[in-house]
Design a binder for these strands. Structure first.
Length: 572
DNA sequence: GCCGTTTTCGGCCCGACTGTTTTCAGTCG
């Protein structure tokens, strides 16, 4: 495994190759094929490089013989040969032209070739010097747009263009609720990537029907937290909130609400695959309806499920709409019944003020857990803060709190640290006193990320590995853990893996959760909450689990504590 | 470059918007 390029690195090369070919005016379908293959690689849980070396990459849809060979080139030579060649012919910054909104490959190539503009600085100068309007098809407005895009890009260079689901989900749910209360509103729904519970988003989409669309749209632009109205028409508006979130509202006709909701929920890949399949059956899908080509008859519905059913599919839960096999499964009627928040009986990774970064007392956290209706709740403060008798002191406090909450089973636990050696930093005799043990890697760097975890799993007291890869979305990449090996070892040792619900962790990620499920491993959904309101992060863990195709049965903590005890590894 | 319950060759989603055009190409989601 060591030394093989990551899936994201391989995928990036194919995307760059696609960009360069597009600039050269290559066949669009080849370009699309490379981009599709890149997406497939990013959404594959195993090592795509290893698959290619084994001749198995071409079993993935969208990857054929040619692309598999190019992956092998990356392993052997570090780069796709065609990419090396093409990079020599195109100034590196010309690719960046295409990233500016409104500026595509055709225009970028003409600016480069016909005006000899090769850097972003030169592009700016050319627009300011009104030289772009010399090209047919470009005018004063184009120059203005490009300058605006360049300025925006310069301003937001550090901001990152995607925000966390954990921020966007409560925000969009609040706006949906507000709009529903308006007298002109008939139906209101979240849409887009946030409805699919994708871990990050660019903007928050809302779809509605209304008795008076213009009135609802205007109301939306005048909500008190709106600081900027980027667009405002009768049926569509875009606003920016005081915390920088972009909301899009579209008001659509009620008779095709289901078709439009389906369209605007995406993903693009899901919709394209569904439309391609429809074409083969003599149907044409658009956001307004499904047309039977032969008769011209159009099917519309206010109900999204009815759209899927008309097309011969089981209704597909939004979390699965990524063109990752869900359409085939829905065609056969074999979609899984996904786990729901209400199935979760207890949280097995939480903190209190015993950890320096915990914000609430043990009793406050337990009180909130009881109010959530949990049957059990594990206190797993960081081992670092439970040294020198503090572990025993906390056990005494837990004993006292138990008396006050007789209906909630309070589990004593710890989040132990996995040392570089693979040992956990709590003695066995202390671990033996506890009901539940989470073990996690905290400090980097890490030159044997996989072995370290495998060794920790051999400890008979370690029940679950916390946030396996240690990623912090947007801040820190995942450690280079061989997740497939970890899953195998987890099954062999009787250790569980968690889906950590912290908004910037969501670790395991969706495709790894799905790989774990397919291997037969049960996962634990946890909040890793360090304060009262963070207990709700379990909702994000549930969302991630659903994106990983997990059913109630695939999740350990949908079971009673008695059942959990039966399933976990035997203690000495 | 990929793919196949009409196909191993000849297709490859669909519509809106924008800016520049007198009928459309490029871009976007």
């Amino acid at each position: 495994m060591v030394g093989l390029p990551r899936n994201t690195e391989v995928a990036d090369q194919f995307d760059l190759l696609a960009d360069l070919m597009e600039l050269e005016g290559a066949d669009t379908f080849r370009v699309i094929a490379y981009r599709r293959a890149a997406t497939r690689m990013r959404e594959t849980s195993g090592s795509i490089a290893q698959l290619a070396l084994d001749g198995k990459a071409k079993e993935l849809s969208g990857i054929g013989k040619t692309i598999e060979e190019k992956i092998v080139q990356i392993v052997e030579k570090g780069e796709i040969e065609a990419l090396t060649k093409k990079k020599a012919g195109v100034p590196p910054e010309v690719v960046l032209f295409m990233r500016l909104p409104g500026l595509g490959p055709k225009t970028a190539a003409r600016i480069w070739r016909e005006l000899d503009v090769t850097t972003l600085d030169e592009l700016k100068a050319a627009a300011e010097g009104q030289r772009l309007r010399g090209l047919t098809g470009l005018g004063a407005k184009s120059e203005e747009k490009i300058l605006k895009a360049l300025a925006f890009q310069a301003q937001n260079v550090d901001a990152g263009d995607r925000r966390l689901l954990g921020e966007g989900l409560p925000a969009v749910q609040a706006v949906v609720a507000t709009l529903r209360d308006h007298p002109a509103a008939v139906a209101v729904s979240e849409a887009g990537s946030v409805r699919r519970r994708k871990e990050t988003f660019r903007d928050l989409d809302i779809i509605a029907t209304a008795s008076d669309p213009a009135e609802l749209t205007t109301y939306f632009t005048q909500l008190k937290w709106v600081v900027d109205v980027a667009a405002h028409g009768d049926t569509k508006a875009t606003v920016v909130s005081n915390d920088g979130l972009r909301f899009d509202l579209r008001v659509v006709p009620p008779e095709s609400f289901g078709n439009l909701l389906q369209h605007f929920t995406g993903s693009k890949d899901h919709n394209v695959a569904m439309r391609e399949d429809a074409v083969r059956r003599g149907l044409s899908i658009s956001e307004y309806g499904v047309t039977t080509v032969e008769t011209g008859e159009v099917f519309q519905s206010a109900d999204e499920d009815a759209v899927y059913e008309f097309l011969g599919y089981q209704p597909v839960p939004p979390e699965l709409r990524e063109n990752a096999g869900e359409l085939e499964a829905a065609r056969r009627g074999e979609l899984p019944a996904l786990v729901e928040l209400g199935d979760v009986r207890g949280d097995l990774h939480t903190h209190t003020h015993w950890s320096a970064d915990g914000k609430n007392t043990l009793e406050e956290m337990v009180q909130a857990a009881a109010e959530r209706g949990y049957e059990y709740y594990a206190i797993t403060d960081h081992s670092h803060y439970l040294r020198e008798g503090r572990l025993h002191a906390q056990l005494e406090e837990i004993e006292r709190v138990r008396e006050r909450f007789p209906k909630l089973r309070i589990l004593s636990g710890v989040e132990a640290n996995i040392r570089a050696s693979g040992e956990v930093d709590v003695a066995d005799e202390d671990l033996a006193l506890l009901d539940w043990v989470v073990a996690s890697v905290h400090q980097a760097p890490d030159n044997r990320p996989t072995e370290r975890v495998l060794e920790a799993m051999q400890n008979p007291y370690v029940d679950c590995i916390g946030h396996l890869t240690g990623r912090r979305i947007g801040k820190r990449p995942p450690r280079d853990v061989d997740v497939e090996r970890v899953i195998e070892a987890a099954l062999a040792s009787g250790t569980f893996l968690e889906i950590n619900g912290q908004p910037d962790r969501l670790d395991l990620r969706d495709v790894h959760a799905r790989a774990a499920k397919e291997a037969g491993l049960k996962l634990v959904l946890t909040s890793d909450g360090h304060q009262l309101r963070a207990q709700s992060y379990v909702e994000l863990a549930v969302a991630q689990a659903r994106r990983g195709w997990l059913t109630k049965d695939d999740v350990l903590n949908t079971r009673t504590w008695k059942q959990v005890e039966k399933l976990r590894k035997k203690r000495p």
